[in-house]
Amino acid sequence: MIRTLKTLAMVAACVSFSGILALSIWTIAGQPAPVNLPQLLSENMARSGVEHPVTAVLLNFRSYDTLLEIGVLVIAGIAGISMAKTASLEDPELRTSDSLLYGLQRWFVPLMLMLAGYLLWAGAHRPGGAFQAGAVLAATGVLMRLGGVPMDFLRPGLLLRLGLVLGFTVFLLVAVASVIGGDAFLAYPPELTKPLILIIESVLTLSIAMVLLALFVSAPVNDAEDPEEGSS
């Protein structure tokens, strides 16, 4: 009885939550937009250094968001690998010895790496960019991991840590350098905008892929019967 009442109360709460949300959306939709952001953006596109508006917003006009985002990712990655049992990372039992899978991988992995590179480059003038490329790169890593390709760099060591913080460090360095140069925080010098964005995007891709892969690997895959995980 109490449980039924509780469920009913929850349903009522959620329906009213949805209703209020939908009502406010309806009200906002009826009013004209206070600022015309797309027009503002297209007027300033020439100064952004790239041709695709989403990339321009991500890495130039609102790059502060992106900086904080990669910061959040790094924190999540570090928290993830600190939870992991390091010995399980290279458990030989996890490696599949399926030769067909291995053969397929040898075709897929280079193609996916190439796709990641293309997505990174395409971000300047069409949909694409650091996040998509990073996701594809991380998926490549997951595929390699599941297929049993040894990946020693994923051991919590210098290489993994460097990969995790590389994107954030470079981004922060660029941001601070412009402050030291007497400009605003994160303001790129106009003549260097395109190369700077390209460098930042490349290291961001690497770092995003590393964070996602580290989080995947640190979700322990060993036997659930082992209660000793993390104690070693």
């Binding site: 952001l37 797309p38 953006l41 989403v54 917003v57 991500l58 609102r62 968001d65 992106t66 996040f131």
Partner: peptide
């Protein structure tokens, strides 16, 4: 593009 970039983030 602005909210789209925010959603991507």
């Amino acid at each position: 593009p602005v909210p789209q970039a925010l959603v991507l983030t």
